[in-house]
């Protein structure tokens, strides 16, 4: 009894016995966990999203059927979308706050700086914030184009519920010069981001061991290449295929 009243003086989190949780989330290491977990879950989304979108190579009918089958599960889609928004915002928020913190911690820069990692001149790992920012820009445009349907110039299908709408609208976005360039660059930079981020997430979760870390690093690079080529190939080839 005395214990819980004493704790209640330390605010709501203390009452709930959650001070430890707050400490974890506000610590540098806790933030790395969140960064890693959200990053890996977003990787999972990328796989399903790429798998679905590769149906664009199969043509209008399979793609439309897939899109309608997906959207008919609207409860699941709503939950998944909410989850994605939370993951994405947490990932972006921590990227911004930790980058500011890191910049402040460094504060002064060397007149001359060279890496001591053998063979490294410039690596994806030092450009995570920059590459992440490019990907963020791409995702925002992509959502405006196809999730919200806010770009009049794209000539969306008149009836958004129609069977033909998903394929038509996707083609409209992919044929737009601005979207095309942004999607292409976004897909390539996303691959660069993943080539460090995937393996890095495991390290942040404390999973580094000579038994499997070399494999994780290779998988991370291959994953980055597959995602980049997968999405970029859609942008490059699909508009020409179904003109």
């Amino acid at each position: 009894m005395t214990d819980s009243t004493a704790q209640c003086k330390r605010g709501l989190l203390g009452c709930l016995g959650l001070n430890w949780f707050f400490r974890l989330l506000s610590s540098s290491i806790g933030q790395k966990f969140v960064m890693g977990v959200t990053g890996l879950l977003l990787c999972g989304f990328l796989v399903t999203h790429l798998a679905g979108n590769l149906l664009l190579f199969a043509g209008a009918k399979p793609f439309n059927e897939y899109a309608h089958a997906l959207h008919s599960q609207w409860e699941l889609v709503a939950v998944a979308e909410l989850g994605l928004v939370v993951l994405f915002l947490a990932h972006v928020y921590l990227a911004v706050t930790t980058t500011i913190g890191n910049y402040r911690a460094r504060r002064e820069f060397y007149v001359l700086k060279q890496s001591k990692v053998p063979g490294r001149i410039i690596g994806a790992n030092t450009w995570m914030f920059a590459s992440g920012s490019v990907v963020l820009g791409f995702v925002i445009l992509h959502l405006i184009d196809l999730r919200m349907g806010l770009r009049r110039s794209l000539h969306y299908f008149p009836d958004p519920e129609a069977f033909e709408a998903p394929f038509h609208n996707t083609m409209a976005a992919l044929s737009d010069p601005i979207s095309r360039v942004v999607y292409f660059v976004g897909a390539i930079i996303l691959g660069v981001h993943l080539s460090h981020g995937f393996a890095s997430a495991f390290q942040s979760l404390g999973l580094n061991h000579p038994k499997y870390t070399p494999l994780i690093k290779i998988i991370g690079k291959i994953f980055g290449v597959i995602i980049a080529i997968g999405f970029a190939s859609i942008v490059v080839f699909v508009p020409g295929m179904w003109r």
């Binding site: 540098s28 790395k32 000579p210």
Partner: peptide, 28 residues
């Protein structure tokens, strides 16, 4: 006010005692 680790591995390469990055995973 030390910064956050972003797993670049520069520390490991510069370390005169060759402390391995696996230690950071263990710390986590």
């Amino acid at each position: 006010h030390f910064g956050n680790c972003t797993n670049t591995g520069e520390c490991e390469a510069a370390c005169p005692a060759k402390i391995n990055l696996t230690n950071i995973a263990q710390l986590n």
